[in-house]
Simulated scan of single mutants.
Amino acid sequence: MAISYKPLWKLLIDQNMKKKDLIALSGISQSSVSKMGRGENVNTDILNRICIALHCGIADIMEVIPEGNEEPFSTPERSK
């Protein structure tokens, strides 16, 4: 399985933010953003900081993609 941070990059675009804005707002390092840009694993603390800074959930910033497939796992609809 692979991790994709495409939802995060889309969220930044929607909020008219740049990666450097995310770094300043969340307090994460440039190296963490670079790792995410390459689809590498990052510490859950980094993901938590991003979610807090952007007021969103983990599914809003990342998705799991099964091996041999380009489609992410779908998350079940949550009842509100």
Rank of each mutant, 00 (worst) to 15 (best):
A2L: 07
A2M: 10
A2H: 10
I3C: 08
I3S: 03
Y5G: 01
Y5M: 05
Y5V: 04
K6D: 06
K6G: 00
K6T: 05
P7K: 03
P7M: 08
W9D: 00
L12K: 03
L12T: 02
I13Q: 06
I13S: 04
I13L: 07
D14E: 13
D14C: 08
Q15G: 05
Q15R: 14
N16H: 07
N16Y: 00
M17D: 02
M17R: 02
M17E: 04
K18M: 03
K18R: 08
K18N: 04
K19P: 07
K20W: 01
L22A: 03
L22S: 07
L22M: 05
L22F: 01
A24S: 10
A24Y: 07
L25M: 10
G27H: 12
G27S: 10
I28S: 01
I28Q: 02
I28R: 01
I28D: 04
S29W: 05
Q30L: 06
Q30P: 05
S31E: 08
S31K: 09
S32M: 12
S32G: 10
S32I: 10
S32N: 12
V33R: 01
K35M: 12
K35W: 07
G37K: 03
R38D: 02
V42T: 08
N43K: 15
T44W: 14
T44F: 15
T44V: 15
T44K: 14
D45W: 14
D45S: 13
I46K: 08
L47C: 11
L47H: 05
L47D: 06
N48M: 13
R49D: 10
R49A: 12
I50S: 02
I50R: 06
I50F: 03
C51F: 11
C51S: 13
I52F: 12
L54C: 11
H55D: 15
C56G: 06
G57T: 14
G57C: 14
G57Q: 15
I58T: 14
I58D: 14
I58S: 14
A59F: 12
D60Y: 03
D60E: 10
I61F: 08
M62S: 11
V64Y: 10
V64S: 09
V64K: 11
I65V: 14
E67G: 06
G68W: 00
G68M: 00
G68T: 00
G68Q: 00
G68H: 00
N69T: 10
E70S: 09
E70G: 08
F73P: 03
F73A: 05
S74N: 13
T75Q: 13
T75E: 13
R78L: 15
S79K: 13
S79V: 12
S79M: 11
K80R: 07
